[in-house]
């Protein structure tokens, strides 16, 4: 299958993957039999979110054309899975696990501490657009609780001091690799 790399024009800009991302899309699509390229959709949406920041309608339309599927097939997937943002998010998402074992180990305290420190509530983004705080369900780190995920990285055995350090590090360099190309 050939990728249909037709750009989507919006009022502000043109939406199209970088060359290297397109190459990665091609590699992923090739993992599936001819005609089954829709199987690549979930991974391609991760790439799109990493490159464009969030999944706007024009971004989803671009992905739909790229993979020869209907736009609605992309919308329904993008809105189903919790890792996709269909609204703009901060540069660094702090995703704190709040389920069972993490709760026992103080996840609620961790969330409260981040809320107070950044002056935002769960689900909100700081006014400078740097941080989004999000509580999420079990991330499979129960034995190393409490924990949060930032980009692809797991931060475990969290303490207030560790959070201070983490936030300082990201403030200085607000880059987290979001499931896109390998960094």
């Amino acid at each position: 299958m050939t990728l249909n790399n037709e750009t989507v024009e919006t009022a502000e800009n043109q939406i199209a993957f970088k060359e290297e991302t397109l190459k990665e899309v091609g590699r992923v699509v090739a993992q599936y039999p001819e005609g089954m390229q829709k199987s690549a959709l979930i991974r391609v949406l991760h790439l799109a979110q990493a490159e464009f920041g969030w999944l706007s309608v024009p971004v989803m339309d671009y992905v739909a054309r790229l993979l020869h599927v209907n736009p609605v097939e992309v919308y329904e997937v993008a809105t189903f899975y919790s890792m996709y943002d269909t609204k703009p998010a901060g540069k660094v998402k702090l995703e704190v696990c709040r389920t069972g074992p993490c709760m026992i180990e103080g996840a609620e305290r961790i969330v409260k501490y981040i809320e107070d420190k950044l002056g935002i509530k769960d689900g909100e983004t700081t006014s400078d657009g740097l941080f989004t705080l999000k509580t999420v369900e079990c991330l499979g780190a129960c034995g190393y609780a409490p924990m949060l995920q930032a980009g692809e990285k797991y931060h475990e055995h969290l303490t207030e001091a560790k959070i201070d350090e983490l936030i300082e590090t990201y403030r200085a360099n607000p880059v987290a690799n979001y499931m896109g190309m390998e960094s």
């Binding site: 993992q31 199987s39 979930i42 991974r43 949406l45 991760h46 997937v77 189903f80 899975y81 919790s82 890792m83 996709y84 999420v136 369900e137 079990c138 499931m179």
Partner: peptide, 12 residues
């Protein structure tokens, strides 16, 4: 045999 990995996107 061909083998590859496919990610989900957050859904128990």
């Amino acid at each position: 045999m061909e083998l590859s990995v496919a990610p989900g996107a957050g859904a128990y």
